[in-house]
């Protein structure tokens, strides 16, 4: 009997992971169209900071490196500058694929822990879906204090001037800390989000 790990090895180059990405990742069907020119890798402003370039991730997907790809933090670094997309000679929607892969990894629980972009996304999503509006104060507090109380205070003090500026300019209300205001029909909004999630889940094969 092969172990689970061996099965994983055998599945390599069976294109199973490629198919999985095609079916379950936003714009994943484009991965096969990459011709490994590397222009995306060279165009990315975050290039020096990540481990795997988009083109390399696409190759790893074709090579069946499921764990490595989904655990990679590279796609979390995408800032949606679209440099790669406008230069890609095959017109791959690379930005969308990167975000799609990140989302997919997150849904599977395989995304790297404590990845700042991921944490921010989670916090933002929870914050925003609660009332249908982003609550800046609560968002910032959660983000700053995610690394502990001391770190939170330090970050808050560092951002003090910006915060006071926003208060003076009435861009932010201190009372929002108590829950803040939402859209008119919060319940309707939340139902809409739920429905959208259901559709998306069904499409990506996550439905129960």
């Amino acid at each position: 009997m092969p172990t689970a790990l061996n099965e994983q090895a055998l599945a390599r180059y069976r294109n199973d992971f490629l198919r999985e990405v095609e079916e379950r990742v936003d714009e994943g069907g484009w991965v096969k169209m990459c011709m490994q020119c590397g222009v995306c890798a060279g165009s990315c402003p975050f290039g020096p900071h990540w481990e795997h370039s988009p083109q390399k991730i696409f190759m790893m997907i074709r090579a069946g490196k499921r764990e490595e790809v989904l655990a990679s933090d590279s796609m979390w670094m995408c800032t949606s500058c679209y440099n790669c997309v406008v230069r890609c000679p095959r017109k791959l929607p690379i930005t969308t694929i990167m975000h799609g892969l990140a989302t997919y990894a997150h849904r599977l629980g395989l995304a790297p822990k404590r990845q700042p972009t991921r944490d921010f996304s989670v916090i933002f999503w929870e914050n925003f879906t609660r009332n249908g509006r982003a609550n800046e104060i609560r968002l910032m507090l959660r983000l700053w204090f995610r690394d502990g109380f001391g770190a939170g205070i330090r970050k808050a003090l560092a951002m003090k001037e910006v915060g006071l500026g926003m208060l003076r300019a009435k861009r932010m209300s201190p009372f929002e800390i108590f829950g803040g205001h939402g859209v008119k029909d919060v319940k309707g909004f939340q139902a809409m989000i739920r429905k959208a999630q259901e559709i998306e889940d069904r499409k990506r094969g996550f439905s129960k």
Binding site: G38, A41, Q55, K56
Partner: peptide
């Protein structure tokens, strides 16, 4: 010239 050598990934 800016880019990445895709054989082994070198910037």
């Amino acid at each position: 010239l800016h880019g990445v050598d895709t054989e082994g990934y070198r910037r």
